[in-house]
Amino acid sequence: MAVRRLELVMTKWNRPRYWVIGGSSLAVAVLLLIFRPYVLISGLQSAGLYAAIALPMALILGIVGIVNLAHGEFLMVGAYLAYFFNATMGVGPLASIVPVVVLMVALGIGTYRVSIRKVLAAPELNQLLLTFGISMVLSQLVNLIATSQPRSVSMSYATVSATIGSTSFGVFDFVYDVLAVLILVGLQLFLKRTRSGKAAVAVGQNPTGARLVGINVDGTYLLVFSIAIGILGILGPIFLVRHSVFPMVGGAYTMKSFSLVAMAGIGNLTAILWCSLALGMAEAFIKSFQGYGDWGDIVFFLMIIVVILVRARRTS
């Protein structure tokens, strides 16, 4: 069994395209290590953050088939819930993950039941507009309750740093890389090893067919949606540790997540990690230049434009 799997992996990696990409990435990494080691580290950390946030979006898109424009807003709500627990009860964000996840899953179930379920059969336009509306409702609700003043917490462990050579860097943000890998592995295990996971894959490929063999399609959608929102419930509090939050903070993450999912291709969860590495590194690289730092926010857009053009060339 293991030999077979190794064989499959080897044949996949025998494609010349992978060698080119792999080789040049390695070269870039080495160059960064020599000249701008902080970029390598910071890029790796933000890659983890982006990947962790993008994976649940990919899950919803691949299985339920809708793009959740409120994705970043759910993350924001999770972060605000953690802030609330911290401000009112003095509970640290990490400690509040469990109650936040519970609340977020409840929010996810509610949102799905009340609205999303109703537009699944409707044209894609309706779905886009609905989730756009939900994103606005969520961010404005938070604005209403907590005003637009940025909120943050200060935890002692947030500022732990390490030093390698002449470069010192924050250590906490590596948690995102760990999380991204855990989420990926967790989702893969769920989708391939569990009964409901395999049902979810079937539903994602062919909802009518799945229904015909007795799979509870609506229940699957609900489960998948809840899992995705639940993951955001884990990420929200962790996000709060080192980021200040404000009602509109989620928007950028929705766009970057979608860019990653689009780049990786629907259904390809693993590729999201590679694409997020590219995005994280590219952003960190741009940001490392004094005075041009703010231009880093354009990187994700340029990447998606390049992907569009490359794909268009390939089809024509």
Partner: peptide, 18 residues
Amino acid sequence: IPYGHRIVYGLVIVVVIL
């Protein structure tokens, strides 16, 4: 509703779509 009156527009969109 000086803070968050925009929620109404979001709700309008959601309600109309549904």
